[in-house]
Each structure stands twice: as structure tokens, then as C-alpha cells.
Nucleic acid binder design. Sequence first.
DNA 1: TATAAAATCTAGCAACGCTATATATGATGT
DNA 2: ACATCATATATAGCGTTGCTAGATTTTATA
Lengths: 206, 206
Amino acid sequence: MVTKQAANRIAERKLRDRQARRSQIISAARRIAEVEGWSNVTVRRLSDEISYSQPVLYAHFGSREGILAAVAVEGFQELGLALEKARKRVKRGSTVQSVAAAYLEFAASSPALYEVMFSLSLSVPFDDAATPRELRFAFSQLLELFQGQSSKSEVISELFWASLHGIAELTRTKRFPHTRQKERVRALVELFTFPRDETTQEVEVR
Amino acid sequence: MVTKQAANRIAERKLRDRQARRSQIISAARRIAEVEGWSNVTVRRLSDEISYSQPVLYAHFGSREGILAAVAVEGFQELGLALEKARKRVKRGSTVQSVAAAYLEFAASSPALYEVMFSLSLSVPFDDAATPRELRFAFSQLLELFQGQSSKSEVISELFWASLHGIAELTRTKRFPHTRQKERVRALVELFTFPRDETTQEVEVR
DNA sequence: TATAAAATCTAGCAACGCTATATATGATGT
DNA sequence: ACATCATATATAGCGTTGCTAGATTTTATA
């Protein structure tokens, strides 16, 4: 009988191998999607890329959709980090400006990644317990932006997110002319920059 | 030889038959999608529903995607009409309020239709000549809203559309809690309702 | 009524997601 | 060092998909 230590090392190595292969699969999926679109990300193609047979992929992710979901979660993690960075290291102008630019830059530079993050309904209602932590982290960066700034900062945050998402999507699907993007961002920032606190309440619909 | 009139009547009847079948296919696709999701809208299933063989569908639309595109165009037509109606018959509050409510009502009541309208990139850049007239019509209803109201009304319109689209999408994909929707709309309307003309320019970022 | 043309169907291909089953590889106990 | 067992991996195939070539039927024309 081998020592317990040796058995542990073996188990650890196997775990590392598993994780390495898992990340290989995710990377391959991202790469193919970004270059050739998600329809070309097939299980057979992925199993070719990592030189394993198809059932190995199913052992890891259960289904093709499971692979896409893993990619999406990775995307939310990266988006959250990018927003956090933008919020803390304000380059020029307001933090709203900085975060908006970072969000749209993320969406524009990895369109396929952004697509899968939102095309999949991989999340039950947003405040649900089963919502991936990465997703909540990303949104929390937007929440921080308006914390205590207005009477209903949560609603403002949701609205800000919706506006950014709308711009990103309409740009990605070529509904917006590629020009004028800077003007759109400028106008957006103006809308969401409140010169004084609590002032917005006085702007009435009448 | 039959008279030229008879030949014409025959041609007209054939055209009518074609159009009737075309609209049958589109209706079936919409119905299935709305109840069972787009993944269940297969060419075989549709050919079953209309009691024709598959090649007939390909004669009409060329491909499965062609069918979805036709549904999407029909959706844009209906959305445009709904927005026009909301803009002209203002029920309560501002026209902005009325149009926003109509837009979100449309998206919420036909989620599968709304999904296919934007998931497909069936349109080249928005101002392109090949952009379906129905798409332009729908957007023109939003343009009218802010016409001459601000110095850059086109940008404001795009931003308004983006916000509505973002809300619709994040709601449809369950990212937003179903509650608070009214508050979101109220806040949105406040943002896009400018008490005086040309004032928005003075709100500076600093 | 015969012929040409138009409309429609049958049958099948390649590729897909997925899995039951077989085989090979590696760890374990004597 | 070898036999045994478990684990990891591969092969091969099922059912379904989008799509189409070629056969067949139906319809219009002379």
C-alpha cells in the first residue's frame, strides 16, 4: 500500500488535470465563437481542438449549453473586474463616464462573449440565491456608482445597466451606425450625472 | 387558347395562394415559438402544421433563418404601429411616458417575437438602403418623439431606444426582478423628459 | 386529349447533440 | 512483480436537424 501522502498528490494532480482541461475547453469555445460565431462551436469541433473524444466534454459540462454557460460566467467575472477597475481608477471626467466607457469597450471588444452572456438565460431572477456570484459581482459595480446618490439608487442603477446593455446590443447587432458612438456615451453620461443630490425628484412629468 | 383575362385570374389566384401559405407559415412559427420556444420551430414541424412537405417552405423562404427573418419583420411592423398609436393617442402623462409603456408592453406580451426581432442580425447597418422599411418605420416613431426638442434629437432618440431595449431584454432574460418595473419606467420617463428646450446642454459633467 | 410546365413529394445526405457500451489506462494489495 | 479492480477514455451509434436532388404528380396550354 502506498503512503497516504502519495495518494493525495495523485488526487491533486488529477484535479489539476481536470481543471486544465476544463479551461482548455472554455478557451477553445471562446476563441472559435469570437472568430467564427457560436454556431461553429460544436461539441465535435471542441473535442477535436483539445484532442479528446466527445464524452469527455460531457463529463465536464453535461451538455453543450453547460459549456456556453461556463463561458458566460467567465465573461461576467471579467466584466465585473473591468468595471471595478474603471470605477477605482478614474481617468478623466466622472466615474459614471469611466464605467460607461469600460462597459461598452468590453462589449465591443468581445462581441461573441458578450452575446453569450445575455443570450443564455443562465440565471434565474437576478436576486435569486442560485444566481452565479460572478453575475452579482458585475452588477454590484454598477450599484456602487449611485449608492446613496439618489432616493432610489437601485432603480437608477438598473436603468443605467439597461441603457448600457441596450447600446451594446444595438451596436453589436448593427442597429446603430458605428459613428456617433462617442456622442451617445456623452449624452448617456449627462443623463445619469446628477449635479446635486435629490434634485431629480423635482423634475416632474406633469 | 384561353383568354388573357382568364390567364390573369389564374395568376392572381396563384399569387393569393402563395401569400396565404406564406402567412400560414409565419403564423405557425410565431405560435410555436411563443408557446414552446424558438428551438421547437423546426422546418419539419412547420411543414407538418401547414400540411405541406419541407421543400415548399424552402421555396418560400430559402432557409429556416429566412422564416425567422420574416417573422421579425412582421414584428417590427406591429411594434411601429403600436408606438405610433401610443404617440398619437396620449392617454395620460407625456407622450414619452405613453410610448415607453407601449414599447415595454409589446416586448412583454410577445417575448418570443421580441427575441427574434433582435437576436437575428437581419439588418445591415441601420441607415443602410437594404434595411427593411418596417424597421425604419418603427424607429421613426421614436425619432418623432424628440424631434426638435434638443440640439441632438437623433442621439437622444437612439439613447431612448437603447434604454427601452435594455429594460425589455434584461426583463425578458430574468435579470431584473419582475417587481419595480413601474418604478423603472417612471425613472426612465423622468430622465428623458426635458422641462425646457435646449436646457440639457447646460447640465455639465464638470 | 396530348404535351409542356409548374408544383409538390419522396428519400436521402451530412452534421448535430448526446449516450450505451467497450476498451485501455492507471492505481492498489499481496 | 503481478493480478485485480477502478477509473478514464474511446468507439460506434441513435434520433433529429437543415437542406436538396431527383422522381412524381398536378395544372395549364394547344
